[in-house]
């Protein structure tokens, strides 16, 4: 069996190469409630990370996995970079929940990958778009267990605008987000 190719950092010079003009507007063939997932990415000192690539992959509004494209870009996939304040924003549809092969129930979530200078491997995780009490049976929530750690993966609905979900990501140190490996 061939060995996997080792990962290396995306480095600081990716922006023009990997960014798309509309990468922050996620496309779907069907309808759904449009929402915006936004927040900031911080390092171990709490300083904003201004040179990260932030990617999303998710189910559609009824929990179906996207396959196909609108003729120009794939459905279901978002790609943006963070700005000088470490901020990202992805405008998409509220994903539906879905079921795994063993009947396990996945809560509404978005799979996230973060790449940056200083990250020798991309960071992988899942952000939940439902409150703690509604995600307890999710496979990742069960694997994490500790509710304080799990809260690092829950996006908070904005009090003033219910279409906005806020999720800050601390890569290291106090409040460090849970990251996953497969």
């Amino acid at each position: 069996m061939p060995k996997p190719t080792p990962s290396q950092t995306v480095g600081p010079f990716f922006a023009r190469e990997l960014l798309w003009k509309d990468g922050g507007g996620v496309l779907f063939p069907g309808r759904g409630d449009r929402i915006t997932l936004t927040g900031r990415v911080f390092d171990g000192n709490g300083a904003p990370i201004y040179d990260a690539l932030f990617e999303t992959w998710q189910a559609d509004a009824v929990g179906k996995f996207p396959s196909g494209d609108d003729g120009s870009r794939p459905y279901g996939y978002g790609r943006v970079s963070t700005d000088s304040d470490g901020r990202y924003a992805v405008e998409t549809v509220m994903p539906g929940s879905f079921t795994g092969p063993g009947g396990e129930r996945y809560a509404p979530q978005i799979s996230v990958a973060i790449f940056a200078r200083g990250l020798l491997k991309g960071l992988r995780t899942r952000v939940f778009l439902a409150p703690l009490e509604l995600i307890k049976d999710d496979p990742l929530a069960r694997a994490i267990g500790d509710p304080d750690r799990l809260r690092t993966l829950i996006a908070a609905r904005d009090a003033g605008d219910p279409k906005i979900y806020r999720w800050d990501v601390r890569l290291r140190g106090a409040g460090e987000a849970v990251f996953i490996e497969f």
Partner: peptide, 16 residues
């Protein structure tokens, strides 16, 4: 300052 300090949580890829 960018490497996580906590161990990663190992899970199976979701069907997504």
């Amino acid at each position: 300052l960018r490497a996580p300090s906590e161990p990663l949580v190992r899970v199976a890829p979701s069907p997504l």
